[in-house]
Design a protein around this nucleic acid. Structure first.
Lengths: 206, 206
DNA sequence: TAAAAAATTAAACACTTGTTTAAATTTTGG
DNA sequence: CCAAAATTTAAACAAGTGTTTAATTTTTTA
């Protein structure tokens, strides 16, 4: 009765790897089976279908994707400190998992897998009280008056995109992985300085 | 002997639409044929294969993608003015073609289509003399000392990403297309102010 | 207008797709 | 140890894939 989970986990790991590299449409279940080193039917034995397997991988990825956000927002820091820490943490995380932003955005863009989204992912973040803190900081004069949504766009743009565009950047400038890695580290500190200066100006406007 | 180009163009238009929406792997040639309202064999009659057709679409998209850059760089303006103008133009362009950034980055990410890239796209930009202008502006003290590559990453992040993440943003915040459109317009002016302030500071560092 | 060329089609090709079936193997529990 | 359950496999399934062929229709041109 007791089932050995190692096979199930091996399939998930293989599926994650293949899905990340080729996308849902870009791979077949046989590609994944080959990566596992087993039969195709085994995938449907553990997970009911290719789609269900993908949804599982997607949810895990999404969870990782939002992890730093919740961690940082839950801490007892000023908004300025939280912003710095968030950029720091997200950057370090995506340095280790550079494929994640593209995977997430592509899946959502093409509506692969069921995305509960609205409340399912929004609520945990809302519960950290970050929104109230933002309003308070803006009322304070500590922070520039920008909507939460626009702050989000600014942050995500500067943190996610550089990893999504890795290949484009490499091909465009004709540089190798190591050089790009250095550029990304430089980008991190630029973004920290630029965003902090902009969002928390010395002489706040309005 | 004179061939009517309208069919060929109709196929290209349909292919562009379908490829943009579903990606190379996400669609079949029959999907495209259905969009055209014709037979599958016709696609291979005009273009030799699905892949060749995709490469054509990709190259056109890439050309559009870099168009504003070359236009602005070729003008007779200061670097600061060029930066403002570039953000302005790219934004307006992507407002009209929001799917483009995701299409390009996804194609490159998954190595769909042959990407000549290195010189083929880099050279025309290099020929505008923008690199010399950048070095001069930095020697001047007019501009912050940031490598060309990092300037590129900063600009692209803030201009491309917001369009790539449209669906994510909408689902995340639970907003409709019109509201997002307004956010994007706001983002444009934020980015202009933020980037200009950062790249061309009043009291330049170093 | 009639022969030649071009455009369009339906049908078939060989192959891959995700999934299912049923048999074989391994593991488990009494 | 041995039946029962769980796991793994090979094989087959129907449907979909990109591409090609050959026939048909339309257009061109002389």
């Amino acid at each position: 009765m007791k089932r050995d989970l190692s096979t199930e986990e091996k399939i998930k790991a293989a599926a994650k790897k293949v899905f990340m590299n080729k996308g849902f449409d870009g791979c077949s279940v046989r590609d994944i089976a080959k990566e596992v080193g087993s039969n195709v039917a085994l995938l449907n034995y553990y997970f009911r279908s290719k789609e269900k397997l993908f949804e599982l991988i997607f949810e895990g990825a999404m969870s990782d994707f939002l992890q730093s956000m919740i961690e940082v927002f839950s801490s007892e820091l000023s908004l300025k400190e939280k912003t710095t820490l968030l950029i720091e943490k997200e950057f370090d995380f995506f340095m280790e998992h550079p494929e994640l932003p593209m995977f997430i955005l592509q899946a959502i863009h093409q509506n692969k897998g069921e995305h509960p989204m609205p409340s399912h992912f929004f609520e945990p973040i809302s519960k950290t009280g970050i929104f109230q803190q933002l309003e308070a900081a803006q009322a304070n004069g500590e922070m520039r008056h920008i909507s939460l949504r626009n702050v989000t766009i600014l942050l995500m743009s500067n943190v996610h995109y550089p990893f999504m565009s890795k290949k484009l950047t490499q091909q465009f400038h004709g540089i190798d992985e190591t050089t790009l890695q250095q550029d990304l580290l430089a980008h991190k500190s630029y973004v920290k300085e630029m965003l902090i200066n902009y969002l928390f100006p010395q002489n706040p406007k309005q």
